Amino acid sequence: MDIIFEAESGMGQGIAKIVTHPAEQGQWGNIEAAIQAAERRILVINAKNDRNVTIVTSTIAVIEPEGRMCSVRVITGEMFLLNTRLKFALEVLDSPRFMKINNQTIINTSYIKEFSATDNARIKVNLTDGSYYYVSRYYMNNFRRSYHG
């Protein structure tokens, strides 16, 4: 099978469109499995049993500081610890999906449901799991420039 890459500016970031011949439809499951297996993973600590676990970065919803580590909450609600400080977490994740919105929070923009203006020139960001966070004034311009919903 030949692979051809094309860029389409109308598509959202983090989305890949795969077009195949109808005869190749039986291979879609294999193609999807291969892409999922290639997705970036990071090593975190399961706080319940203190064991190292590997998780896919796209499942991470929020990262917040927890002492000298970071608390990592995945979209299912599970909590893990990342053995790095918050200021280095964006380097570890290495993905344009993640954005620092205040001094205490990094969110995955893939899970933003909606956002709205609030008092004191801040933005309230609602995630798909029902949680919400505030974009501080310092990070406001970066949020407006980088988030394309």
Rank of each mutant, 00 (worst) to 15 (best):
D2V: 12
I4Q: 13
I4R: 13
S9F: 05
A16D: 13
I18A: 04
V19C: 04
H21P: 08
W28E: 12
W28P: 03
G29V: 09
G29R: 14
G29C: 10
G29W: 07
G29S: 13
N30C: 12
N30P: 08
N30D: 14
I31C: 04
I31N: 03
I31T: 01
I35E: 00
I35K: 00
I35A: 02
Q36S: 09
A38G: 10
A38Y: 11
R40D: 09
R40K: 10
R41V: 11
V44A: 00
N46C: 05
N46L: 02
N46P: 03
D50I: 06
D50T: 05
R51M: 03
T54K: 11
T54I: 10
I55V: 01
V56H: 09
V56W: 05
T57R: 00
S58K: 13
V62Q: 02
I63C: 00
E64N: 13
E66C: 08
G67M: 02
R68D: 09
R68P: 05
R68F: 04
C70H: 03
S71I: 10
V72T: 02
R73Y: 11
I75T: 08
G77A: 07
E78M: 11
M79V: 15
F80I: 00
F80W: 05
T84F: 04
T84N: 06
R85V: 14
L86R: 06
L86W: 08
A89R: 00
A89Y: 01
A89W: 03
A89L: 01
L93I: 04
F98R: 06
M99K: 06
M99P: 07
K100A: 12
N103A: 12
T105E: 11
I106W: 03
T109P: 10
Y111Q: 02
I112N: 02
K113M: 04
E114K: 06
S116P: 08
A117D: 13
D119H: 15
K124V: 08
K124W: 07
L127A: 06
S131M: 14
S131V: 07
Y132R: 14
Y134C: 12
Y134R: 13
Y134Q: 13
S136T: 07
R137P: 07
Y138H: 14
N142H: 11
S146M: 14
S146R: 15
Y147G: 06
Y147W: 11
